Simulated scan of single mutants.
Amino acid sequence: MSTATTRATARGPQRPAPGELQSVWLVAEREIGSKLRSKSFVISSAVLLLLALAAVIWGGFAANSAGDDRIPVAVTSSTEGDVRDVPGLEVTVADSADDATALVRDGSVEAALVPDAAGGAFSYKVVADDSAPTDVLQLLQQTPNVELLDPAGAIDGALRYLVAFGFGIVFFMAATTFGATISQSVVEEKQTRVVEILISAIPVRALLAGKVVGNTVLAMGQIVGLVAIAIIGLAVTGQSELLSGLGSPLVWFAVFFFFGFVLLAALFAAAGAMVSRQEDIGATTTPLMLLVMAPYFLVIFFNDNPVVLTVMSYVPFSAPVGMPLRLYLGEAQWFEPIISLAILIATCLGAIWVGARIYQNAILRMGARVKLSEAMKG
Rank of each mutant, 00 (worst) to 15 (best):
A228K: 10
I229Q: 03
I229W: 04
I229C: 02
I231S: 01
I232F: 11
G233T: 13
G233V: 11
L234Y: 01
A235P: 00
T237R: 09
T237W: 05
Q239E: 11
E241L: 04
L242W: 06
L242K: 07
L242H: 05
L243S: 14
S244H: 12
G245W: 05
L246M: 15
L246N: 11
G247V: 04
G247D: 03
S248G: 04
S248M: 13
L250D: 00
V251Y: 09
F253H: 10
A254M: 05
V255P: 09
F257H: 04
G260E: 01
F261R: 10
L263E: 10
A265K: 00
R277K: 15
Q278E: 05
Q278L: 14
E279H: 03
E279I: 00
E279C: 01
D280I: 01
D280F: 06
D280A: 05
G282W: 06
A283Q: 09
T284Y: 03
L288T: 07
M289R: 08
L291S: 13
L291K: 10
V292A: 14
A294Q: 05
Y296L: 12
Y296M: 15
L298W: 11
I300R: 12
I300Q: 14
I300F: 14
N303K: 10
N303T: 12
D304W: 02
N305G: 07
P306R: 08
P306N: 08
T310N: 13
T310K: 15
S313D: 05
Y314M: 13
V315L: 14
S318Y: 11
S318I: 05
P320L: 08
P320A: 12
V321R: 07
P324S: 05
P324N: 04
R326V: 01
